[in-house]
Amino acid sequence: MTRFVKLSIAILTAMVGWILYFISGFVTRDTKKIVFGTHTGTFSGNVKALYLDESYKKDAIKIFIYRNENIKASLEALDGKPLYFSYLSFKGIYHTLTAGTFVYSSYASDINYWLSKNAKLFNVWHGTPLKKIERDVTTGFYSIRNKYEFLFKYIYPHLFVRPNQLLVCSEYEKACFKTAFDVSNEAFVEAFPPRLNTLKEDYINEINKNFIIYAPTWRDDSSFQFYKNCDLNALNEVMEQKGLTFLIKPHPSDKMKHLDKKYSHIKLAPLSEDFYVLVKKAKLAVTDYSSVMFDCMYCNIPVVLFCPDLKSYMLNSRDFYCDIKELPFPLMESGNDFIRILNNNFTACNSDKFLPYKNTLT
């Protein structure tokens, strides 16, 4: 589907959507009902953690509104009797219209922006950013929506709405989010990332760490393919010698091909797999510009950065909130150097600049 066709569909959707948004403002909302939703095809992150946490808003009715069959399958596998409905179902629409609070991982459209008028919007953003996000993006394709905000805010209003509350997990993150979301200090909710509440302890207790997890972020220009930037035959040989599997876990928005053929010790994880479940069994986490580097640092999981396209990424995709070379992780820009460093023993790294808050949400 071309971008022109997508834009045309979005304009038609917005014409109907604004009417629905206006009507939704007349519905009485239940302050003790919370609807949850996530922007990707995976049941994961802060939204999952808060939805499942019985101590979080324990007096509220918590309902998950799903937009993807993979998420539905994950919800069906849960113990107990969780409440969840499709965003297009009658019950899903009803609960979305009557919920007092929306809890989402990116935008109110994770649930349904057009039915959100007068609801309290709580954005529990999915990660601590290195790359610039939202209103701070000035390079690459996604800078266009900021340049023409006067137009796009009517076609894609969910991209520009300011949340009533915004979860922040550190002083560094707060500084990033203040400009990215253009919110006042009163909007910030300070807490340790709910998605990581048990990860540190789980990682320590896991005995069978038998793989290296590689979690590259997606590129705005869809330019990166792992197999074109690393000698996978050599990598496979190193993994075989170490008795490990190199597990590639792409970003949920990444549609690029990362393997050119099958390998005995290099595997591709399904997009629907939860990174936070997988990383518990990893001896090492490898990423590039993804927020998972900070998640691993918070939980004392060793990290290596593999950034063979560093210059082009900063030119064609995103700039950074801080100098990537000042981060406390080993940084490799060539495939050969990256493979060589995998023979080393790794320890977790930390930095006072990025220390997270210690309190948890209740």
Rank of each mutant, 00 (worst) to 15 (best):
D182R: 15
H158V: 15
L151V: 15
C176Q: 03
R162T: 14
P82R: 07
Y172W: 05
E190Q: 11
R3Q: 13
K242A: 08
F338L: 08
I339G: 04
T128P: 03
P163E: 02
S89N: 01
A175K: 15
G92P: 00
G100D: 02
P330E: 04
Y263N: 01
S106I: 12
T139A: 12
N70G: 12
L121R: 00
E190N: 10
S290I: 01
G140T: 02
F211R: 09
P356H: 06
L342F: 06
L235C: 07
F226H: 10
N123I: 00
L7V: 13
N316Y: 13
Y148W: 14
F64L: 00
H258W: 08
M1I: 15
H95W: 11
S184V: 09
N359H: 09
T38N: 11
V124A: 04
K267P: 07
D309E: 10
K209R: 11
V137N: 05
D110P: 03
D136Y: 05
G92N: 03
I19S: 08
D53E: 10
L75D: 00
A180Q: 03
K255L: 15
G25S: 01
A73N: 14
T96W: 07
K120E: 12
P252S: 08
A119V: 03
E171N: 14
I63S: 04
S24L: 01
Y298I: 01
W18C: 08
T139S: 14
S317L: 04
Y276L: 15
L315R: 15
H39C: 13
D319T: 14
E134H: 11
S264P: 05
T40L: 10
F152R: 06
S272V: 11
F85I: 03
F224G: 01
F320H: 09
N185M: 11
N210Y: 05
E149I: 10
Y142D: 13
K117L: 08
A14K: 01
N229F: 07
